[in-house]
Design a protein around this nucleic acid. Sequence first.
DNA 1: GTCTTGAAAAATGTATTCACTTGATAGAGG
DNA 2: CCTCTATCAAGTGAATACATTTTTCAAGAC
Lengths: 253, 253
Amino acid sequence: MTDQSDRTLLEPAAGSRAGNRALSVTDSIREAILGGSVSAGERLNEVQLSKTLAVSRTPVRAALQALAGEGLLDYAPNRGFTVRDFPLPAIVDAYDIRAALEGVAARFAAERGLGAEEKALIERSLAAGDRLLERGSFEAGDLTTYRGINGDFHDALLAAARNRMLGEMIRICHHVPVSSSRNIVAFEYRDVRRRHDDHHRIYEAVIAQEPWRAEMLMREHVSSIKASLIRSLSQRQADHRGALQAAEVGKIA
Amino acid sequence: MTDQSDRTLLEPAAGSRAGNRALSVTDSIREAILGGSVSAGERLNEVQLSKTLAVSRTPVRAALQALAGEGLLDYAPNRGFTVRDFPLPAIVDAYDIRAALEGVAARFAAERGLGAEEKALIERSLAAGDRLLERGSFEAGDLTTYRGINGDFHDALLAAARNRMLGEMIRICHHVPVSSSRNIVAFEYRDVRRRHDDHHRIYEAVIAQEPWRAEMLMREHVSSIKASLIRSLSQRQADHRGALQAAEVGKIA
DNA sequence: GTCTTGAAAAATGTATTCACTTGATAGAGG
DNA sequence: CCTCTATCAAGTGAATACATTTTTCAAGAC
């Protein structure tokens, strides 16, 4: 079976990122994976990809290797690349790992102290969240807005940790398909409010130069996201519509 | 300056690993980096490498990308790969990250429980350590022997955590040049004895299915290695022979 | 003397070609 | 009818050729 290559899931040339073709090809394939266009365990055929993306095999191979480095693909010699499978337990585990790592990041940030710019960035994110939550309820689009705010907070704190390896590992955790907090949880107003309060407290601990308190709070913060995920998963399962909705949610954007 | 390409640091064809050339090339270059044959910030020239290793540029490029994925190299479009710099603070940080990650691993292992084979592996490592420490002092080579035992213990526990991402991240921490516990610390008998006791206690916690205790113990265990590193570094600095001995120690094998 | 400019060299990016491995299929033999 | 084997198709691995970019360096202008 030559596989139906007509799935227009991968646009010919997304031309997304600057630099060279290999990089944009990498982005295209990554998006296809994270977006769920290609399923777990699926084998990625180099010639087929190169035809679809209208480039030669060379940048395709480069992209595949890069994605393997990011942990999204598996590689077997003489057998090429396959989409790595992330069973549910692994996804849940990713939150524990993220909790530990972001905890360390918060500790580092508290130890090192924040620069003026970092303070401004975080405070802006906190203020934006306050404003959004002021109304007491959510309207359409608010959740997406908060996702941005949330991301800004975490990114800023991570930057303040001033450790590249840590940043890369956390990024990997975020890129576990359907695992990122940006994709899944915080559906209800109350949850978001609670998490925003967490942000405030974490920031206070960091400003107060209380490294271990900052770490603990951040761990708890991320762990609570895991708890929400589990809750929403089991609830969805109870609705007997597990897989379907899960796929939907994954694409919430 | 065309750079003296005569440094015979990279053997033509280590032929080390099975599979394809790209993999063995990867190993060769990695060893060169970890062994300190190429210095931080240095640019890796593809054609030069391909000549030295007697292969074409294709597997060399593949290897470089793989190593960039491992975090050992930096990549800039149209500018190739450079050896990533790990300043001392980053190396020290790596121990904190490792402590957090291995802590999570210990917790997972305790939660999941150990299989018969895993138990056997760990107990063998513990027994081997006991035997080695029985004499009350170290002779030549004992330290190297214990390094193996230590590695076995940590590897077995990591395997018991049954989480691939975690394993990969910890491996990255271990591969931070001159950062691995296998390369540096545990010089004195007393230190080793203490750490071996840690192992026993961690194992007990895991067996007793006490996840959080296992995590805490493991964190402390790895953190103590960091402390030893810092101590030995500052002592060495005090000896006014900093750089020289540091290089030596890095190669202790 | 310094800065700008441009051309040549060198290095990376991409495409193409050939080589080798793998896997499937069909046919012969039991 | 099953099994083993040979052959071929398909896919990955590696090498080479070509394109584009970066870097160097020297010549010329201010």
